[in-house]
Structures are given as C-alpha cells and as structure tokens.
Amino acid sequence: MRLEGTNLLPASVETVWKTINDPEALRRCTPGLKELKEIGPDTYQATLTIGIAAVKGTYAGTLAITDKRAPTHYKISLDGSGGAGFMKGEGTVDLEPQGDGTTLKWVGDLQIGGLIAGVGQRMLGGVGKMLIGQFFKCLEQHLGGGT
C-alpha cells in the first residue's frame, strides 16, 4: 500500500536531518522496535514486535538508509520476516525549511505479506498509517515540539 504524509517539525533542517539519521532517535521512535544493531554504515539489524492490541507479530530483518543527499533527502527501507509473515517498507524523506521549522514530506510503499495480509486487510491500511504517524509524532516530541 502506498502511504504519504507531511509533518511540520519544530526544528531547523539541519537538526531534523541529524535526528532522522541518529540511530538513537530511530530506536526510540520506531514503533515496536526491540533491537537495532548497527551492522554496517547506515545499515542495521532490526527486530520489531509490531501490531495492534492483541494482534502482534515479531519480524526480524534489516533497516537501511540509502540515497543520502544531506541535509534534505534520503531513502529508508525496512524489511523483516517472522511467523506472522513479512513486511517490506520503503520510503523517501524530503526536508524543506518552513519558517523556523521544517516540513518533512514522506512517501512510502508498505508491503505486508503472509498471515496478517490474508486476515487483516480490513484494518491494515489504517493501522499502517497510524503506526507511521506514531513514528513522526515521536520525532516531533524528540525535537522539542509536541501537542
């Protein structure tokens, strides 16, 4: 499924760029992330337990940041597999100054496969968007903003 959004973050482009490249921020804000171990430059081994309410699956895989054009653009990809199936997400992130802050535009393609896709199609799109929203909300708070 294709998802996209725009978030206004209360920090300069440089600060936002640093944050979204910082494994600490990724560790803190990626929903369900249990482990993030650097295995190479901009490449991490990741384990996520992700889902909604009682429905959870554990996925083990890789998170990688590529196509870096500092300080305004990169591509982030996350793929993992587990008992509940597999997931593969790819997104591009673009930063633009907006007044004192930064507009973060993200466009992503999220593929969910296996058990959860065959049973949960009713809510997958909504939940996916919600989890991604959680990520950016967390980033926002991390950057000193917050509602």
């Binding site: 499924m1 593929q111 969910i112 496969g113 896709a117 065959g118 049973v119 199609q121 009713r122």
Partner: peptide, 16 residues
C-alpha cells in the same frame, strides 16, 4: 478472491 499487487491473497477467511 482479492489479491494485492504483490500477489498476497487478501481474503483467506470467511470474514472476507
């Protein structure tokens, strides 16, 4: 029987 563009079947229970 709906499939997504990656060939994932989306209706694998009688709910769907």
């Amino acid at each position: 029987l709906a499939y997504d563009p990656q060939g994932q079947p989306l209706a694998t229970t009688f709910m769907d």
